[in-house]
Design a binder for these strands. Sequence first.
DNA 1: TTTGATCCCATGTAGTGCCATGAGACCGGT
DNA 2: ACCGGTCTCATGGCACTACATGGGATCAAA
Lengths: 168, 168
Amino acid sequence: MPGANYFSGSFTHRIDGKGRVSIPARFRALLEDQGESEMMVIPSYKDGVMEAFPRRVLEGIFERLEEKDPQSEEVEDLATYLFGGANTLSFDKDGRVVLSPELQEAIGVTDQVVFMGRADRFYMLSPERSKEVLEAARIRSREKHRGALAPRRRAPLVQVASLPDEDA
Amino acid sequence: MPGANYFSGSFTHRIDGKGRVSIPARFRALLEDQGESEMMVIPSYKDGVMEAFPRRVLEGIFERLEEKDPQSEEVEDLATYLFGGANTLSFDKDGRVVLSPELQEAIGVTDQVVFMGRADRFYMLSPERSKEVLEAARIRSREKHRGALAPRRRAPLVQVASLPDEDA
DNA sequence: TTTGATCCCATGTAGTGCCATGAGACCGGT
DNA sequence: ACCGGTCTCATGGCACTACATGGGATCAAA
């Protein structure tokens, strides 16, 4: 945990009768490092995937864009999408959040959720979908970024390869 | 709740026989944080949508424009639109407001209203319309802002002193 | 008196906090 | 290597509170 900067790894957790799920301890620790006891989830551009952010990351995205061009239709749409589509999930002392039936349905989960780290955020999706997403990303990465995992000449030990956004 | 700066999330509430609706608790808390026990409501540019602001946000919008261009016809029109078209809805101890028949008709609601957060304000609209608005915003955002949600190159999630900048 | 608005109270349910259990990881001692 | 102890963490259950919502009482204006 100490020094972890990014969400990484995949964890499958169980949803109980009330819709509660434990956030993976590592993810929770990362959120709490930033003084947040909540996260924001929003449907991804990818189908069947929810993205989870610390709140300030989401707000930062918005503020940065608004600063640039407050009136534009694009920023309007983005604000609607980000803030209208977002849910704030605050976790209790045990590190659990409640997934409303709508949220469960949105990502097609019933009794298990996968938390998949993805740098500054993480995904929440069904076990099946997570395999697809991971495998698709692996294949595309192999094709386009053969060298990504090779040692870099000047790279420090902890350097993380920055992969571009994959396509839906 | 602590520190929430923006309206976010969507909530569907029921209108009773007298036209009363509960403001979502989170939204109400945000309004009350600003010392307001009322909100201003005004028809949006978008059809079938009402926008709800804390009073000071509405006044701020006007003042900013007036400052920029005090005499223009645009500002005249805006002032008319903003102040003429606005309704003040104050909420009671239970956090409810009354939607007059005219307001209900304006957004085409009969027994349910959706409150949709949108940064410094929120929308009020029918359940059907809310799905349209949200989905349209999502699609357009995806097209125009592919990268908007992408991680920022130089901004690690948790700032760490010893990490070098990412460019080679 | 009627209508419309505001307030107050009642109730069910969903949300949240708190505690208990149990599995697994980790560690230290022998 | 074996064993016991402790710690972490996921998960379940129970209890309480907050909140949305309905109904009735009060009050004022028409």
